[in-house]
Structure formats: structure tokens, C-alpha cells
Computed example of a mutant assay.
Amino acid sequence: MWFQKTVQLTPKSRGFHLVTDEIVHQLPSLNQIKTGQLSLLLQHTSASLSLNENADPTVRTDLETVFNKLVPENHPDYQHTFEGPDDLPAHIKSALLGVQLTLPVSNGQLALGTWQGIVLGEHRNRGGSRRIVATLMGDG
């Protein structure tokens, strides 16, 4: 079985956000898969997807702090500045973290670790709604 859908996330403030439930709720076909995979592709170059801590929100706050120190705004060497001081740093963070995840599916559920969740990194001050192409494949 193959199934594909573009999932629309609600707009998020800048930072790292747990979006596992928001994605899963938009994929009712997930419960039909006994053994398979879910591929997620974020269709943006100024946000990211990662698999990370799902319980303690301070992890997501700390991720934002660290990435802002690693990739500061208004660096004098940046050339791509037309879209604002948060734009090029957002592209760099997206390149570092990535925009794609492939996750196992077992018995109609994502087979994630106890403390794992899908995290959207919103790297723009006003990124808006984000789209993810979700491709589900497996045996029913």
C-alpha cells in the first residue's frame, strides 16, 4: 500500500515545536499499516525537521538557544540579507538539521522510542504555515 498526502501544520512561533500528534492526526491511513515506513519531506528551506525529546520542553528551548549562538543574525559575512536578518540564518539551520525524516511504522503506529517525537524547527520570525509531504508505504 502507498499513500501520499501534504500535511499542513499550523503556524508556529520561532523555535522548536513538537508536531508528532499534529502530523499523525492528518494521516488516518497510518492505522492500516502493519509494517512500513513514513517518509516526511518539509517543503521549506527556512525550517527543519528532526527527531528529538518529546517530554521536556526545555530541550526545545535549549536547542533554539544553541542554534542562535551557532548561527547568529546580522553576521558581517552574510550576503543573502534582502529578506531580513533571520532569513540566511534560517537557511543555514535548515541545512544543518535537514528537512526529511524516514520513520518506521508498526501495527498502525509510528515506532518511535519512548522519549522521541517529531520536532519542527521554525527558524523564521514569521514563517507561517508549513507543508510536509507525507508518503506512507507498507503492508496492511
Rank of each mutant, 00 (worst) to 15 (best):
W2H: 10
F3M: 05
Q8M: 11
L9A: 09
T10V: 03
P11I: 08
R14E: 13
F16C: 00
H17V: 11
L18G: 09
E22K: 05
V24I: 14
V24D: 07
Q26R: 05
L27A: 07
L27T: 00
N31P: 04
Q32C: 12
I33V: 15
T35H: 15
L40Q: 03
L42R: 02
Q43T: 14
Q43L: 15
H44V: 04
H44Q: 08
S50R: 04
S50H: 05
L51S: 06
E53Q: 09
D56K: 01
T58Y: 07
R60H: 11
T61R: 13
E64K: 15
E64N: 13
V66P: 04
F67S: 11
K69C: 08
K69M: 12
K69I: 11
L70I: 08
P72I: 08
N74Y: 07
N74W: 04
H75A: 14
Y78W: 15
F82S: 14
F82Y: 11
E83I: 09
G84I: 05
P85F: 10
D87W: 04
P89W: 12
A90C: 15
A90E: 10
S94I: 11
L96D: 08
Q100I: 03
L101I: 00
T102Y: 03
L103Q: 01
S106F: 07
N107Y: 13
Q109I: 03
G113D: 00
Q116M: 02
Q116E: 14
Q116A: 06
Q116I: 04
G117N: 03
V119G: 00
L120I: 11
L120K: 07
G121M: 02
G121N: 03
G121C: 07
E122N: 09
G127I: 00
G127A: 09
G127D: 04
G127F: 06
R131C: 04
R131N: 14
I132L: 06
T135H: 03
L136V: 03
M137H: 05
M137Y: 02
G138E: 03
D139A: 13
D139G: 03
D139I: 06
